[in-house]
Computed example of a mutant assay.
Amino acid sequence: MKSPELRAVIDLGTNTFHILIASIDADGLIHEVYRERIFVKLASDGIETIGAAPFDRGITALAHFADVIRKYRVKEVTAIGTAALRTASNGEVFVRQAELETGIRIKLIQGDHEAQYITRGVLAALPPLDGRILIMDIGGGSTEYILASERGVHWRQSFPIGVAVLHRGFHHTDPISEEEIRDLYAFLDHILVPLKDILRQYPTTHLVGAAGTFDVMADVLKDAAAVPHPTSHTLDLKGMEELHFRIVASTTAERLDIPGIPPERVDLIVVAMLLIRYTVELANIDRITVSDYAMKEGILLGIDEASPLV
């Protein structure tokens, strides 16, 4: 029997470039053969325009991914550009130069399309749903929220509140000041009104996080007593308060010494933790699950199969 063809998915995020090479079997299961992330930080000089240094870092990362694709002899490649590339004034220039230098053709997608991919990926990673969940995917340039249940997907929306955006707008002191936290929360109060409204209609206390800071939380707070699952992880919330305050009250140097936090995330993880805390308090969350799957897996599994809104 012929083995399934390998496919490559490249996610060009505002903070991180990812590549996933895998096949999909006849039962729709993902079989991963290679995964890598490179912290490019496209928005390190601002999200309005990609600076010269991050521009070069991005092209170098894609050249490396092109070498990996050739090594694995992958014929089908999907490269997706998200918030930074779709909003930066020179995003299209980056896309053209990337294709010229690496042969990788990048497709820019809007936030709602991104949320559809995330929905498909996350739902595939979870056990069968037994109630409503709020999915949250924190990126560098945007954050996606999705409300779903065993009936299907009720609502999804992308908001321009990625960690690179929030860090640049609100985290200027080290450690972050109480005034900056108040300003950040006031901003979230304003921009997340649609989320507040939908939670009144579809309340849920179960948050499902995907990627980024949620991966860090899964490493530190994984509930050892929970029933194991191959592609999702239940958090032990007893340690969440302590972890939150340890991160938010720390300096950059102190965060480097906190086990489980990659050095590349120490600058952005403060605003990410504050965004998660805001969401937890807004929805009265009492259960958090972390999904191993997000947008890349959603692309592999096919956007045409994504759940429609119900």
Rank of each mutant, 00 (worst) to 15 (best):
Y202C: 10
S44C: 08
V95Y: 03
T234I: 12
G260Y: 03
L282S: 04
V93M: 13
G140Y: 07
L188H: 06
E99L: 12
D112F: 15
E48T: 13
I30N: 00
E241D: 14
A125I: 08
K41P: 02
A88S: 15
R96S: 15
G141L: 04
D112C: 05
I161Y: 04
E101I: 14
I30L: 09
E144P: 08
A66W: 03
G141T: 04
L6R: 06
T16Q: 00
G46S: 08
A225W: 07
L237K: 00
V163M: 06
I258G: 07
D174G: 09
M273Y: 10
I135T: 11
P128Y: 14
S158C: 08
L12Q: 01
D304Q: 13
D11E: 08
L129K: 01
D267V: 06
L268I: 15
A125M: 08
P308K: 05
L195A: 09
P160N: 05
Y278L: 09
R168A: 15
T87L: 14
E281P: 04
Q97A: 09
V74K: 01
M273F: 15
G131K: 03
G260C: 05
S3L: 15
Y185H: 15
L85F: 14
K75M: 09
A83S: 15
V193E: 11
P128I: 10
F55I: 12
I109F: 15
I69A: 04
A84M: 06
A124Q: 11
E144Q: 13
L184N: 04
E48M: 10
V74Y: 09
Q110V: 15
P4I: 14
R200Q: 13
F39R: 00
K41V: 04
E305T: 14
R96V: 12
D197G: 02
T16K: 00
G121A: 08
A22H: 05
A88T: 14
A226E: 07
R37C: 03
A61Y: 03
Q110M: 12
